[in-house]
Computed example of a mutant assay.
Amino acid sequence: MDTRKTGLAATRRRVVVTGEVQGVFFRDTCRRTALQYQVAGWVRNLPDGSVEAVFEGEPHHVALLVEWAGQGPPAATVRQVSVVDEEAEGLEGFEVR
Results as ranks from 00 to 15, higher is better:
V21L: 02
G49R: 05
E52I: 03
R27S: 02
R97T: 05
A10G: 11
V24Y: 09
Q22R: 12
G70M: 04
E89Q: 15
D85C: 05
V24H: 08
V51R: 07
Q80E: 15
V51E: 04
V16E: 08
L46C: 11
R27Y: 09
E67R: 09
V21A: 03
L65H: 02
G72A: 10
S82G: 07
H60G: 06
Q38S: 14
M1T: 06
G23S: 08
G93A: 08
T18F: 03
L91T: 06
V24C: 05
V43K: 08
F26L: 13
R12C: 09
V54E: 12
F25Y: 15
W42A: 00
E56N: 02
N45D: 07
Q36C: 07
E92R: 10
M1K: 06
R97H: 14
D48F: 10
F94Q: 02
H60F: 13
T33V: 05
Q80A: 15
T3I: 10
G57N: 07
A34V: 12
E67K: 11
A53R: 02
V83E: 12
L65C: 07
E95R: 15
K5I: 13
H61N: 14
A63N: 09
A10K: 10
H61F: 06
F55R: 09
A53K: 02
D28G: 07
R4H: 09
E52A: 08
G57D: 11
R79V: 03
D85T: 15
E58H: 13
V16D: 06
P73R: 00
H60I: 06
E89D: 11
M1P: 08
G57H: 04
A53D: 01
V16M: 10
Q36D: 14
G70Q: 05
L65Q: 03
R44H: 07
H61L: 08
E67C: 01
A34S: 09
E86R: 08
G93W: 14
P73T: 08
F94D: 01
V96R: 06
L91A: 12
V66T: 06
F25V: 04
R12Q: 05
P59C: 01
A53E: 02
E92M: 05
A88H: 05
N45I: 14
Q80P: 02
R14H: 15
Q22N: 12
F55I: 11
G70E: 02
T18N: 01
D2G: 12
G70V: 02
M1F: 15
Q71E: 12
A34Q: 13
V81Q: 03
Y37T: 03
V43L: 12
E67G: 02
G70L: 07
L91G: 03
E89I: 09
G72H: 01
E87M: 10
S50F: 10
Q36W: 14
T3H: 12
C30H: 08
G57F: 09
R32N: 11
T33Y: 13
W68E: 00
T18Q: 05
V54F: 00
F26W: 04
V16Y: 04
H61I: 00
L65A: 02
D85L: 14
R27P: 01
V17L: 04
F55P: 01
M1A: 13
R31M: 11
F26P: 04
A75K: 12
H61S: 12
Q22L: 08
R27D: 04
V21D: 00
V84Q: 14
Q38G: 13
G72N: 07
E58D: 11
L35A: 06
A10P: 15
A69T: 11
E58K: 05
Q80S: 15
F94V: 01
E95I: 10
A75F: 11
